[in-house]
């Protein structure tokens, strides 16, 4: 086992350990962690199984197989960012709707409070 393989195995293991620990502590919701776990697992698999990495590198025309790890890692990072963009879009839409609800409800509340005052105090 050469040095680059050792580093990548340790790196992937570290990433997986961090992800699992964040989930365990409830800081990372399971639904958002699936893609992260997949990233860590694929990187670990390719680090451990050198033959698979060589095969992959040869298939896409990479001369130095460990560079293939970077490519795979990069693709997963792109997917993660895209995934987050989708989530951010959804959150901002929900945020917009909530802000509108607040404005509409606040006006309704003011109106109801005013009518209640009118009833108790009589017409002004």
């Amino acid at each position: 086992m050469n040095r680059v393989q050792l580093v990548s195995i340790l790196g992937s293991l570290g990433l997986l350990a961090m992800i699992l620990e964040l989930i365990r502590r409830g800081k990372l919701a399971e639904e958002y962690s699936l893609l992260w776990i997949a990233t860590g697992a694929v990187l670990l698999l390719l680090s451990l199984w050198r033959g698979l990495l060589d095969l992959f590198a040869a298939a896409v025309g990479i001369f130095y197989p460990p560079s293939g790890l970077f490519l795979v890692g990069f693709i997963f990072v792109l997917l993660l960012i895209l995934h987050f963009s989708v989530i951010v879009s959804r959150l901002s839409r929900q945020n917009r709707e909530l802000a509108q609800d607040v404005a509409l409800l606040r006006e309704k509340l003011e109106r109801m409070t005013r009518t209640d005052d009118g009833k108790t105090r009589g017409e002004e």
Binding site: R96, A99, Q100, V102, A103, L104, R106, E107
Partner: peptide, 14 residues
């Protein structure tokens, strides 16, 4: 006017 106050700036569309 009746006033609807948004808690923060949402932009013209929203």
């Amino acid at each position: 006017a009746v006033v609807l106050t948004l808690p923060f700036n949402l932009g013209i569309g929203a």
